[in-house]
Every structure is written in C-alpha cells, then in structure tokens.
C-alpha cells in the first residue's frame, strides 16, 4: 500500500526533470541519425520510477539511520535533553602519536618489553592478564630463555597425578600469566569491592583505546571544588563518573628500566599501554604487513581487469553499422 502510494508520488515528482532533459537531447539530435536502440531518457524514467529503486533507497535510508544510531547512540538531527552532567561520560582523551598508530607502523618492541616490566612490577599486583601465555612473549619482547626463566619462577597447580592428587610444579612456556587473585570475590575483597578488570583486552574494550588508558593512568588530580569523592575513591576526570577505585599507581622512578630509559610517570604509562595494546592485538604487526600486500595485489588486479574490459569492448564501442538499402534491380 505504502509502496504503491509513494511510487506514484515519485513518478509525478520525477516527471519534471527528465522531460526537460529529453527535449534538450532530442532537439540537439534532431535531423541526425538515431544512435541507440534504447531511448536513454525513457530508460532513466523507468529506473527512477521502479519499485526496486524505491525499495533500495528506503533500505539505504533506514540502514544509514540505523548505522548512525548504532555508532553514536542517538538519532541524527534529533536533539536530546540530558539530566546528567557531561562529566558522567568522562573527559575525552587527547589523541597521542603512538609509534604504532600509522597504517604501516609496527609496535615499538623495546617499549613492549619495558611495558611488560611495568605490568609485572606494578599492575600485576591487582590485574590479571588471562589471555597471554609466557610463550606469547617469545620473539616479541623476550627470548625463549628469558621467558622460560620467568615462567619457572611461578608455581602452577597441575594434575591429577597417578594417585589422583593435584601437585605444584614450576611454570612452563605454555602456561598462562598467573592471576593475582584466585577468584573474583577475592579480587573485590582486596580492592574495597571494586573488581580490577582483566587487562588482556582492555585496550580494545574501552572507548579511546590506548589514548584512554594512557590518560587514565596519568590523569589523577585533586577533585575540583564542589565535587565530593567518597573515602577510598579517587578523582580521575577521564574515568566516566570521575570517581575510580584504583588509586594513582605510577610515580616517577617507580621501576628501574634495564635499558636506562628514565622511568617518568608518562614514560611508564606509555610503555605499559604499548604492552597492553600488543596484548589486545598480538597479530598487529603481521596484519599491517598483509595489508600492504593485499592493497598492492588487489589494486593491480583491479587495474588489470579495467584494462581487459576496455580491451574487449573496443571493437564493440568503436563499430559503425552501415545500412545499404537494396538496389532496385528491376530497371
């Protein structure tokens, strides 16, 4: 019903443009030969009035609105009234020039190595890193020997053995990073009820990604006048709501880097965030290399197929058809 109605409306609206265009074309061509078997303006009118076009346009419109709504959370061009305050959303982080931000740039692996050290010495006291095993560090930030030694320093529960008992053994390369707490309840109990989230995918799991985590780690400050922060909470303008259970953890000179890099707060934050970006996206370097290859290959293939298309069509596009009327042979 709706499609019928609007198809008619579309036809009426569309009939103005094409008619004028077609008179123009036909006047300029009048007296000369007719080139094609199809009338182009009629074809256009058919296209503009077809059900398929209407359905396609409606689908496209609905799709764009749905996509916009999904991306920004609101309808386009529709105003909104907020009862909350913008600080509930958290400050937007600045965009930092990460060594790996460019489309051709790999991670800075020296920074990943320092970042692992920061994670191990600082964050690992509260945050787990479930999805990273010791073997993942090999060939990324540590040698196999180093990773094996680090793994062996940790005791893992294994088993059951032949007697059906669990036993303790030193870690192997295949073991995953040990969690600081045995379970969520213990983690909450150790942090005044707040759960320190697993950091394996934290960079992918937060708006602002690496920029956000960096800003969070370096953004602690005294609460502005009029903002009440409960006992045991800390003010951080980048954290949605402003009050975060994690206190500031990075202070100048907290760790000592083996490569002599000065361990300032921002340096440590940069390194640990680079490490966490790698942990969330270990395939990053390979992926960008495949991207270069794919772009080169697919654009060459596209150019080749465009060329072949033109090549095959030249004879058709350039032909002329002559009509020789039959000669009357009766005289």
């Amino acid at each position: 019903m709706l499609s019928r109605l609007s198809a008619g409306a579309l036809k009426r609206a569309a009939s103005v443009g094409p008619t004028r265009a077609s008179t123009l074309i036909s006047s300029s061509r009048s007296g000369s030969v007719r080139f094609a078997s199809t009338n182009s303006s009629a074809a256009f009118e058919n296209l503009a009035n077809s059900r398929a076009t209407l359905a396609g346009l409606s689908l496209f419109t609905a799709g764009s609105i749905a996509w916009y709504t999904h991306l920004y959370g609101t309808f386009p061009f529709v105003g909104e009234v907020h009862a909350g305050h913008l600080s509930d959303e958290g400050l937007h982080p600045a965009s930092y020039p990460w060594p790996h931000s460019g489309i051709l740039d790999t991670f800075d692996h020296a920074s990943i190595r320092r970042g692992y050290q920061v994670y191990r010495e600082v964050c690992a006291a509260c945050h787990s890193l479930d999805r990273i095993a010791w073997r993942n560090l090999v060939g990324v930030s540590h040698t196999a020997d180093e990773a094996r030694v680090m793994a062996e320093e940790v005791e893992y529960t294994d088993g059951p053995n032949a007697e059906g008992e669990m036993f303790q053994r030193p870690g192997k390369l295949a073991d995953y990073m040990p969690p600081p707490y045995p379970n969520e309840e213990a983690a909450r109990a150790g942090n005044a009820g707040a759960l320190p989230p697993d950091l394996s995918l934290i960079v992918k799991a937060r708006h602002g990604a690496a920029d956000y985590v960096f800003s969070l780690l370096t953004g602690y400050m005294d609460p502005p006048a009029g903002v009440e922060i409960r006992e045991g909470m800390n003010y951080n303008p980048y954290f949605p709501g402003g009050a975060i259970s994690m206190a500031r953890v990075l202070f100048d000179g907290l760790v000592e880097y083996e490569d002599g890099t000065p361990a300032t707060t921002s340096q440590m934050a940069k390194d640990v965030v680079t490490f966490l970006s790698w942990a969330a996206e270990p395939e990053h370097d390979e992926r960008k290399k495949y991207g270069i290859k794919a772009v080169i290959l697919f654009s060459s293939l596209t150019l080749i197929s465009l060329y072949i298309k033109r090549f095959k069509w030249t004879s058709i596009k350039n032909r002329k058809i002559f009509y020789n009327p039959p000669v009357d042979k009766t005289h």
Binding site: L104, T106, H109, A110, G139, D145, E146, I292
Partner: peptide, 23 residues
C-alpha cells in the same frame, strides 16, 4: 614487501633489538 616494511620500521621490531638480550 618485507624489505620495505623492515626499513620503514627500522629499530622498532624484535629482530632489531634481539641481539641485546640473546646469549
């Protein structure tokens, strides 16, 4: 492609810093 990639990212990848740590 690898030659280009390694040149573009000179000094950043593991193979560039590995010699400092391997015994």
């Amino acid at each position: 492609v690898t030659a280009f990639y390694d040149r573009w990212n000179a000094g950043k990848q593991w193979k560039d810093i590995r010699h400092k740590y391997v015994q």
